[in-house]
Write a protein that binds this DNA or RNA. Structure first.
Length: 551
DNA sequence: AATGCCGGGTT
DNA sequence: AACCCGGCATT
């Protein structure tokens, strides 16, 4: 590393002249070829910066070399490293990891960018897209997915409802005619059309039988289309994403009962895939996929897992599916001095209704008032080990941007009676989650540890008596006021700068003009060492006050 | 000597 | 503004 720096420095002309080592393979002075250094600093560097987070996952060495290449490259004519190397690198990345959409919207060649699903996918899709619709479609539909198609499809269907079945039939015929040209059997065709319909929508895997006997397939279609649309809107607006996550809520949406399980789940899957199309760089919405897509992957084992793995790896977030086995949802009564914890929402509602609200008779009836008196607790078996990271999977990305926007955690909660139980209950968790996710997501283990000591998690014990209300607020305050010194949003140096002095200002008022006392905490240099200078926070790299490990 | 980072220069 | 580094204070 130092060598690298030296090399760089010397290649730049050895500003200080004196102690600079002679550059390894280069004539030091005199008729030096004019290095195109002015062209260098901008783009390549940026590229390096962009790459590094992803590479970080793959291991330090790669990045190291990458970085070295970059820096060296700037002083050199673009023989091999940059122009070609960049492409090569990216390709490599793509191949290794399947997809990187860290900056997915950067390039707008939609077609190229499309294959998020990983290497295996590209081929079948091509086939499916082009001629080979016939044979492989059944398999493909499970995995391939074009949100566009879906949208186009549904909109088509909606607008031209009348001719839709016809079209489908034609489609089916066309499909059929190739392998076995024979007289069209209408029954089979209709059945097939149903199948195709499903396929088009990417609704089911092959193993799930679509009941062809259903007479009014049109009605059913409408149903599904509407369901799909509902889900579209849901998945499009990230804030309303919570509902499908929780299976055991008593009021699972009405659309759910109307649609077959296949419908709902496919929608989940669909909304999961959607981000690739929406050029939403942040993350897919794993919660949906975690619950829904999985069952459908199992019938087709050749693909699903890897891909999910890859995606989770790509987005460098804790694997969302973890939640499935490690999460346990409990419901805690918030009534004063009660603190009863039950495992089902129905149970806790009944409890509240009966015990606290005194509505013993009307056990079935629920106006939702009970919802105000209990809260959902997600117990994570990993929580102890991972710290708050365990909570993270609930909701990944979008609130990273604006953590401290909801300073009214409790009061508001108890007041809006019209709100739906689910959303209301979800919010505390799903909102607190991104914070924790953030902590885990951004850096390394030792950075994840300090947050564990924050009040929120300290109280996050299954049976803590003072748990419920007080627990919900801390995450919020925590977000707003960085109790945890460890982490800063990438854009937040300024913000954090304020906090540092704020904390320090009261004790050492005397030394206002002087240097602030040296921080005793770990700094990037200590933590990562000189050889991993690339991992340092920028401030440390520039020999400024460390931003990552604030004191 | 190693480290942290301020102040200031350069791009 | 981002980047970089001399040089000083602290450990």
């Amino acid at each position: 590393m130092q060598a690298r720096r030296l090399a760089k420095r010397s290649s730049l002309g050895g500003r200080r002249g004196g102690p600079a080592l002679p550059p390894p393979g280069r004539a030091p002075e005199g008729g030096r070829p004019p290095p195109p250094r002015s062209a260098g600093p901008g783009p390549p560097r940026a590229a390096g910066a962009a790459l590094s987070p992803a590479l970080l996952l793959l291991g330090g060495e790669d990045e190291e070399e990458e970085g070295a290449g970059l820096r060296r490259g700037r002083g050199r004519p673009p023989e091999r490293p940059r122009g070609g190397a960049e492409d090569g690198d990216e390709d490599e990345d793509d191949e290794e990891e399947g997809v990187i959409e860290a900056d997915g919207d950067e390039d707008e060649d939609g077609e190229e960018r499309f294959p998020p699903p990983g290497p295996g996918r590209a081929v079948p899709r091509g086939l499916a897209r082009g001629a080979g619709k016939v044979g492989s479609i059944k398999r493909d539909m499970t995995f391939t997915f074009h949100p566009e198609d879906l949208k186009r499809d549904s909109s088509k269907k909606l607008s031209h409802q009348p001719w839709f079945p016809l079209a489908m039939e034609e489609d089916g015929k066309a499909a059929d005619s190739r392998p076995a040209p024979r007289a069209p059997d209408h029954d089979r065709d209709s059945a097939r059309s149903v199948c195709l319909l499903e396929q088009k929508r990417k609704v089911v895997s092959s193993s799930i039988d679509v009941p062809p006997a259903r007479k009014s397939s049109e009605e059913l279609d409408m149903d599904k289309v509407t369901a799909a649309m509902v889900l579209t809107s849901l998945s499009t607006s990230p804030l309303v994403r919570s509902p499908p996550v929780r299976p055991n809520e008593s009021m699972s949406g009405s659309w759910k009962e109307g649609g077959a399980p296949s419908s709902s789940c496919s929608s989940g899957y669909w909304s999961w895939s959607a981000p690739s199309d929406q050029s939403n760089p942040s993350t897919p919405s794993p919660p949906l996929s975690a619950d829904c897509a999985k069952p459908f992957r199992s019938p087709a084992p050749d693909d699903g897992i890897d891909e999910a793995e890859a995606s989770s790896l790509l987005f460098d977030e804790p694997i969302p599916r973890k939640r499935k086995n490690s999460m346990k949802v409990m419901f805690k009564c918030l009534w004063k001095n009660c603190g009863k914890v039950l495992s089902t929402a129905a149970g806790i509602q009944k409890h509240i209704r009966g015990v606290h609200l005194g509505r013993v008779g009307e056990s079935d009836y629920s106006d939702g008032e009970e919802d105000f008196y209990y809260t959902e607790i997600k117990l994570n078996t990993d929580a102890v080990a991972d710290g708050l990271g365990g909570l993270a999977p609930a909701s990944p990305s979008q609130s990273l941007a604006s953590p401290p926007t909801f300073p009214i955690p409790d009061s508001s909660r108890t007041e809006s009676p019209g709100a739906k139980a689910e959303t209301k209950l979800m919010t505390p968790l799903s909102r607190s989650a991104p914070t924790t996710l953030y902590l885990v997501h951004t850096d390394h283990a030792y950075q994840a540890t300090p947050p564990v000591t924050i009040p929120g998690s300290a109280k996050f014990t299954p049976n803590g008596s003072s748990f419920s209300v007080s627990w919900q607020s801390p995450p919020v305050t925590f977000t707003g006021i960085p109790v945890s010194p460890t982490h800063q949003p990438p854009g937040g140096p300024g913000e954090q700068r304020q906090h540092g002095p704020a904390a320090l200002s009261s004790p050492p008022r005397v030394t206002v003009g002087l240097r602030k006392p040296r921080g005793e905490g770990k700094k990037c240099r200590k933590v990562y060492g000189m050889e991993n200078r690339d991992l340092w926070c920028t401030a440390c790299r520039w020999k400024k006050a460390c931003q990552r490990f604030l004191d």
